[in-house]
Design a protein around this nucleic acid. Sequence first.
RNA 1: GGUGGCGUAGUUCAGUUGGUUAGAAUGCCGGCCUGUCACGCCGGAGGUCGCGAGUUCGAGUCUCGUCGUCACCGCCA
Length: 585
Amino acid sequence: MYRTHTCGELRIENINNEVTLAGWVQRIRDLGAMSFIDLRDRYGITQLVIDETTDSSVAKQLEGLGREFVIQAKGTVRERSSKNKNIPTGEVEIALSEIKVLGPAEIPPFTIQDDTDGGDDLRMKYRYLDLRRNPVRENLVLRAKMAHAVRSYLNSKDFIETETPVLIKSTPEGARDFVVPSRMNEGQFYALPQSPQTFKQLLMVAGFDRYYQIVKCFRDEDLRADRQPEFTQIDCEMSFVEQKDVLDTFEGLTKYMFKETLGVEVEDFPWMPYSEAMEKYGSDKPDTRFEMLINDITETVKGNNFVVFDSAEYVGAICAKGCANYSRKQLDGLTKWVQRPQIGAKGLVYVKCNEDGSFKSSVDKFYSQDDLKVWAEKVGAEAGDLILVMSGGKEKIQGAIGELRLEMGNQLGLRDKDTFKPLWVVDFPLLEWNEESQRFHAMHHPFTSPKSEDIALMDTDPGKVRANAYDLVINGVEIGGGSVRIFDSAMQAKMFSLLGFTKEEAQAQFGFLMDAFKYGAPPHAGIAFGFDRLVSLFAGLDTIRDVIAFPKNNSGRDVMIDSPSPVANEQLDELNLKLNLKEKE
RNA sequence: GGUGGCGUAGUUCAGUUGGUUAGAAUGCCGGCCUGUCACGCCGGAGGUCGCGAGUUCGAGUCUCGUCGUCACCGCCA
């Protein structure tokens, strides 16, 4: 038996027990005639003592012992003469009678402590050491608890957990596929699923009625702090339901997860149309923890010979409460911030609403105090507030001022990580025009049904058609999305035609789905949550890397196992593949 | 594909206008220490300043390229 107890469980009641512990050496404190060892496992830390009562052979075994050695320690539990109130085991210690090295350790490249000295790069290279640290392990424990909550909730609602294949077919729509060459089918490739979308719809045709899966999905696109090439979704589909049924079910799931894992009660989720989100927040994933809504002041500001505004399609403003005291330097900083290429605004106009009721703006040449007073009323600004104005193309400026709004929210501390504001964004457009390919793309995916009242528009003005599509947004993070699906093969064919597919292409790519719909397809709808994002949100983190045991870096590499990597020529031969690497110039 | 930040001791970082032998903390090694728990005290070792070119009398510092890494834009149905 390697151990009788864990390193986190001994208490004052265990005094005089003979115990055996096993774990990692956290720290050795050598005081000369006596030494202390902190022994660590995932349950906690227990202090081992060597003093004048300890057999000299044991003391000898301490020579060469270092941090992160795995040892087994036998001894007697005794009360400490000086207690440590900071740890649960702090009232007791183990008087050592025997110690044995189970696994020696080299000096670790960074400290295994809550506040490690290791940088991200090094932590990822030695991720197995990083995972020994409490904060990282706690994230993964939270993840496990959340996955458990998902299963227990959905199981209780009669959902059937079903696995779908990972080797599937590449399709041109959506993200780039990861492809896998097939040895047995020369020159042909599988693709890894971007989502189990078509399979879960086929399960509905199969009569499963309620399906879910916590499932890995793959997208070969560039990474971000919240995007990994392989990621996990809570994927669901339901039959004989309308949009409200899906939203109610998954609002219930989300609330259950908040309650079970964080002990947090969240209010009912409001529904916000996509158009309202864009108008008021400049984003389809609004952070509703704070107001500072965007105001359309296009008409208000016209006609004062200020060419920039007069010629602008759209002029938008936000009101930053209590920021009239912003210095020239701060305002210049904001201007510079919106002028960065990532935002790409030309400039930023400000109006300070002074405490004495006067106004000071960067456009005083063009606008009188009375003009500015009208602006202030329009945006709800009071004395002490700062109005920030941007102008240009409508969509671009809404997006830019939405970004500025978030930045101001950060600066003013309005984005508290312990506050959770979920909402449903609904009525997304069905299609969006893609300049590059000069055709419509499905905003959600090609299986999304149009709103029944907009179906006529599909022939006249497809860009105006709204979809039965919805996103769950929490604190400005897109947690998940879904839609009521098309379940009629004729409508599905029409959709493919709108997306520029020929009949033959649609049949070749998705014929199996349209065929299935011919054999009795129930009305169905579904949703998928980004599980990694949800865990990182719960954990208060900005990156999903720390809620994934072995994540990839920015370039899609696993620096620990050093992948991706070349394969042997023999492997390529078996697959009938030949590399065609481009020469670097 | 693009924009920006970073790259100096095992690690995290500092390094002034380009100027003598590149520093700190921590870790590591050695010594001392009977109640520590971030133990303390004393001493020591440890550097291809990512790599390559250029400018210069002189480059950690400036320029260009390159590699790595991070954040973002594009992209992500």
